[in-house]
Design a protein around this nucleic acid. Structure first.
Lengths: 190, 190
DNA sequence: AGCCGAAAGCTACGCCCAATAGCCACCAGT
DNA sequence: ACTGGTGGCTATTGGGCGTAGCTTTCGGCT
């Protein structure tokens, strides 16, 4: 019987794909094993159980989202950066709901946890959006939190079908970005 | 052996309490049964399985949150109404994370589902907040969605410890309310 | 009061999943 | 070629959901 040639990263990516397809709550060792053409107990040679696997998916999601934000925001500032960052988050959550759910549900185990630095990089991108607005330094942290809340809330509600009429969702999103841009501009130059 | 005198509402409330205490994901028939001094299979005489139980918790949560919003917003308008509604949502999510998680995770099965009307009442309260601002009717729906997104996102991130501890979360929340109030005021009188 | 049927509790069971133990085969390095 | 580590496997335990079927209790009716 030939070996499958698995490493932790292979298992994590397969699990992340499965989570995106069937939902994080439906993720199980069996279905990941089946995807990889392997029996479930074999996965424990590469991954330390379902909790560890979810943690790895969370880290993968944070890394990917951080990279996507960096790439998308290259050379942009102000309203353009804001709109691009928002759209990037929204698209990532829509395309990878399982990874994103893992990311939001997880918390780093310590300061040397790769998840911690991955999350920090995402936050740095959010902070970079705000550099284009001339905010009071004390307001920066509040603005970052508001931005996170808005984007997280909107994307989460959208993927869980929390909005009634999905036809206008793009309009609502654009309106929201304009609203925030105007508010930040006014806050920067009072 | 005496009867426990259970009805669906009793089971639902006990389950909601348990979910608030240990988290919705940890909810199981066994632990609810233990709370009620009963064996797990007995619950199936009152409730149609775990999915139905979660659905009932979601409905309970939506009803309670709707009532809390109505009570809190009595006679308030404009910024006061906005601040009170936001604080009410935030407090409810903090005090009842399990119920709230059930509410956001669930979707009504049909138009006659009690959950649908309960959710509608919550949305009506959000809409009522905006009546104090003189928005263009076409903007109303966008503003409601933004309000939902912000409050949902903030409360969710806060309860999952998504914010770092270095700055006061209350300050951020107050700043955010002021930000939205100013934006809505400006949008109403351009 | 006595009975009778519905309903509420129970035990026993089947199935699925997480996780561990322990076995066997494959491959690398000497 | 041998040998040891490693990656797969089967078998098993424990727990959770849900069903089947039994027993007991309680309300209503005569």
């Amino acid at each position: 019987m030939p070996r499958a040639g698995l490493v932790p990263a292979t298992v994590t990516e397969a699990a992340a794909d499965v989570a995106d397809e069937i939902g994080l709550s439906q993720l199980s060792m069996s279905v990941v094993a089946e995807r990889l053409g392997v029996k479930a107990p074999s996965l424990y040679k590469h991954v330390d159980g379902l909790a560890d696997l979810t943690h790895r998916i969370a880290t993968l999601g944070a890394l990917e989202l951080g990279d996507a934000l960096r790439d998308a925001m290259q050379g942009l500032a102000g309203r353009d950066a804001l709109a691009m960052a928002a759209q990037t988050v929204r698209a990532y959550v829509k395309d990878h709901p399982g990874r994103y759910a893992a990311t939001t549900g997880a918390s780093p185990t310590g300061p040397d946890d790769p998840l911690a630095s991955a999350l920090d990089r995402v936050l740095e991108s959010f902070a970079a959006v705000l550099h284009g607005y001339h905010l009071n330094p004390g307001e920066q942290i509040h603005a970052v939190r508001m931005l996170r809340s808005v984007l997280h809330g909107f994307a989460t509600l959208e993927t869980s079908n929390g909005f009634q009429l999905d036809a206008d969702i793009d309009d609502s999103f654009a309106w929201m970005i304009t609203f925030i841009d105007r508010g930040l501009t006014a806050a920067g130059a009072p």
